[in-house]
Design a protein around this nucleic acid. Structure first.
Lengths: 138, 138
DNA sequence: ATATTTATTGAAAATGATTTTCAATAACAA
DNA sequence: TTGTTATTGAAAATCATTTTCAATAAATAT
């Protein structure tokens, strides 16, 4: 019941726990694929009829700020969000069903320092994402 | 004068070469950082006063289709475009001035096949991008 | 060169996503 | 409880992008 943990996080950071936020949190936390604000709105209203789209946007903003969710960038668009994995993880997305899997990518360190040396850049951050077909869809 | 090559590409693919397209191509091709449509519009109008923003959008669309430019995804937004490097390359972006550098990342193959084995996914595509400070800005 | 065909243009309007405003409501600390 | 104040949803505003359309101009055929 990790949704409760998320609500605790909100509370501990001075935000109130409301029915609208419960609906958003429970929707996003249990999804295994990235959801757009409108998808969260549609799914969330099944839990709390009066939920407004504006509140979805506002809640996603706070969840992102608390690092509980992250924005997912895809060729078709960058408006979707998914729950954050534990630690430093990267995403692997199914091009057919959207199913997301996390993986660790810390084998990148040697590649990154070699790039830094060659280009003269100081590298602070990296994004790595894989696309393909999940076991069910292939 | 690679802008001429881009215009040839347009022509060879059945598109006409116009003053508006010249302005867009010359602007984007020589930029070393990613530009948004509005930035291309502002810079392009210095070359061709009558350039319209709509034409910028339409031209960028064609250049992307011909793989002459690519969309650049960043934490602050995903509307910017930059010239494509040669072959399969990845981007390294300066967080201060936006300067872009390309690098090859084909050392990723072993990481990727290990992920594929562990997750059961068939991996078709990958995105890797680094962020940091360029030699001038650090 | 010139005429002809048809892709391309810019402006305005339409759309879609996101943000702001605001008065009413509800969380929660006292 | 009660009072304070963050939060709410609706409507309006904003911003990015796309569509519509009549006028224009590029490229081909003459």
């Amino acid at each position: 019941m990790s949704a409760e943990l998320w609500l605790n996080q909100l509370h501990e950071n001075g935000y109130r726990v409301t029915a609208a936020r419960r609906a958003v949190v429970e929707t996003v936390e249990k999804s295994t694929r990235a959801l757009t604000p409108v998808e969260v709105y549609d799914m969330g209203r099944k839990k709390y009829r009066a939920l407004g789209l504006v509140t979805v946007y506002r809640t996603l903003e706070k969840l992102e700020e608390l690092h509980l969710i992250q924005r997912v960038h895809q060729p078709m668009g960058c408006q979707a969000f998914i729950s954050m994995g534990q630690g430093h993880q990267h995403l692997l997305l199914c091009q057919n069903c959207g199913q997301a899997a996390f993986f660790e990518g810390d084998d990148l360190n040697s590649l990154i320092s070699s790039i830094a040396r060659k280009t003269g850049y100081q590298v602070n951050e990296h994004w790595l994402q894989l696309f393909g077909l999940c076991a069910n869809c292939r």
